[in-house]
Simulated scan of single mutants.
Amino acid sequence: MEATLPTRQKLILEHRLDIGRFLFYTNMVIGEFDEGIHVTKRNAAKAIEIALQLYGGRTSIVYISHRLNSYSMDPVGYGEIVKMFPNFIGFAVVSRNRYRRMLAAIEKLFIKKPVGVFYDLEAAFTWAEDLLLKPRE
């Protein structure tokens, strides 16, 4: 990932897990899953645990799925994970692959929060920062 992204976000922690790399910013988490991984709530538990420790239930966060690799996931687990984070306010998908961006339309059915789909990480950061500035209901 480029280190020169224009953002007000501060990188708090970078963590390498068995399923991929996670970057935890002030109000954003970027997940980059490894090639060929099948992501489930179970194997994502460590990343979820780290996020819960860092953000608790008060800090608003946006999750950015930086899809550099090809992998599969269990979309049914989305709803369960979202419920664990009452402070989760949005989800972004970043991919240069048209097919992977199209899959995000299916994911929107499982995530009852704003979802953005982007070609590059910079656009996702801009969208997420705008979302974080909006008043919450």
Results as ranks from 00 to 15, higher is better:
residue 2 E to Q: 14
residue 2 E to I: 15
residue 3 A to E: 13
residue 6 P to K: 14
residue 6 P to R: 14
residue 7 T to H: 06
residue 7 T to R: 05
residue 9 Q to N: 04
residue 9 Q to L: 04
residue 9 Q to C: 04
residue 10 K to H: 06
residue 11 L to C: 00
residue 13 L to S: 03
residue 14 E to G: 14
residue 16 R to M: 14
residue 18 D to Q: 09
residue 18 D to H: 07
residue 19 I to R: 01
residue 19 I to A: 00
residue 20 G to S: 03
residue 21 R to T: 13
residue 22 F to A: 02
residue 23 L to K: 05
residue 24 F to S: 02
residue 25 Y to L: 04
residue 25 Y to M: 08
residue 25 Y to E: 06
residue 26 T to H: 07
residue 27 N to A: 02
residue 29 V to Q: 04
residue 29 V to G: 06
residue 29 V to T: 07
residue 30 I to Q: 11
residue 31 G to M: 09
residue 31 G to H: 02
residue 31 G to W: 06
residue 32 E to A: 08
residue 33 F to A: 11
residue 36 G to I: 00
residue 37 I to V: 10
residue 38 H to R: 03
residue 39 V to S: 00
residue 39 V to Y: 00
residue 40 T to D: 03
residue 43 N to S: 01
residue 43 N to G: 01
residue 44 A to F: 02
residue 46 K to F: 11
residue 46 K to G: 12
residue 46 K to A: 14
residue 46 K to R: 14
residue 47 A to Y: 08
residue 47 A to V: 08
residue 47 A to S: 13
residue 47 A to I: 11
residue 48 I to D: 10
residue 49 E to G: 12
residue 49 E to I: 10
residue 50 I to L: 13
residue 50 I to Y: 14
residue 51 A to S: 10
residue 51 A to E: 07
residue 51 A to V: 06
residue 54 L to S: 12
residue 55 Y to S: 12
residue 55 Y to A: 12
residue 55 Y to V: 11
residue 55 Y to I: 06
residue 57 G to S: 15
residue 57 G to F: 15
residue 59 T to D: 13
residue 62 V to F: 07
residue 63 Y to M: 05
residue 64 I to L: 05
residue 64 I to M: 02
residue 64 I to A: 02
residue 65 S to A: 11
residue 65 S to I: 06
residue 65 S to E: 05
residue 68 L to Q: 12
residue 69 N to D: 01
residue 70 S to E: 15
residue 70 S to C: 15
residue 71 Y to R: 00
residue 71 Y to N: 00
residue 72 S to V: 04
residue 72 S to C: 08
residue 73 M to E: 03
residue 73 M to R: 05
residue 74 D to K: 09
residue 75 P to I: 02
residue 77 G to K: 09
residue 77 G to A: 13
residue 78 Y to D: 07
residue 79 G to I: 14
residue 80 E to N: 10
residue 82 V to N: 02
residue 82 V to H: 04
residue 83 K to T: 12
residue 83 K to H: 12
residue 85 F to D: 03
residue 85 F to R: 04
residue 86 P to D: 00
residue 88 F to I: 05
residue 88 F to K: 03
residue 89 I to N: 03
residue 89 I to C: 01
residue 89 I to P: 05
residue 90 G to S: 03
residue 91 F to H: 03
residue 92 A to N: 07
residue 92 A to S: 04
residue 93 V to W: 10
residue 94 V to M: 09
residue 94 V to A: 05
residue 96 R to A: 12
residue 97 N to Y: 10
residue 97 N to L: 07
residue 97 N to R: 09
residue 100 R to N: 14
residue 102 M to G: 14
residue 103 L to M: 15
residue 103 L to C: 15
residue 103 L to W: 12
residue 103 L to A: 15
residue 104 A to N: 10
residue 104 A to L: 07
residue 104 A to V: 07
residue 105 A to G: 11
residue 105 A to W: 13
residue 105 A to R: 12
residue 106 I to M: 14
residue 106 I to F: 09
residue 107 E to V: 08
residue 108 K to R: 09
residue 109 L to P: 08
residue 109 L to Y: 03
residue 109 L to A: 07
residue 111 I to Y: 06
residue 111 I to N: 08
residue 114 P to T: 01
residue 114 P to W: 02
residue 114 P to R: 01
residue 115 V to Q: 02
residue 116 G to W: 09
residue 116 G to V: 10
residue 118 F to C: 06
residue 119 Y to W: 11
residue 120 D to E: 05
residue 121 L to D: 04
residue 122 E to W: 05
residue 122 E to F: 06
residue 126 T to S: 11
residue 130 D to M: 13
residue 131 L to C: 01
residue 132 L to G: 10
residue 133 L to P: 04
residue 134 K to T: 06
